[in-house]
């Protein structure tokens, strides 16, 4: 199966290629409203389809203090 990688807070997951960014975020148990997805250091929308070999980095947007 062709896969893409999801990276969030030093953790990595493999997800199926062809999945939307939003589905991938939910698949790894992250709330989509709390992150911005980056592919190749570019912001991508949640409906973007992941290609085989893609690396999707999720940047946390919620800060405290």
């Amino acid at each position: 199966m062709e896969t893409a990688k999801v990276i969030y807070r030093k953790k990595e997951w493999e997800v199926a290629a062809g999945m939307t960014v939003r589905s991938a975020i939910e698949k790894v148990g992250v709330d989509p409203s709390t992150v911005i997805p980056l592919r190749a250091k570019k912001v991508v929308n949640e409906q973007t389809l992941l290609q085989a070999g893609d690396e999707l980095k999720l940047v946390n947007v919620i800060s405290g203090g």
Partner: peptide
Amino acid sequence: ERESAAYALV
């Protein structure tokens, strides 16, 4: 906050 983060990343 999400919009602010997206701006910084863009």
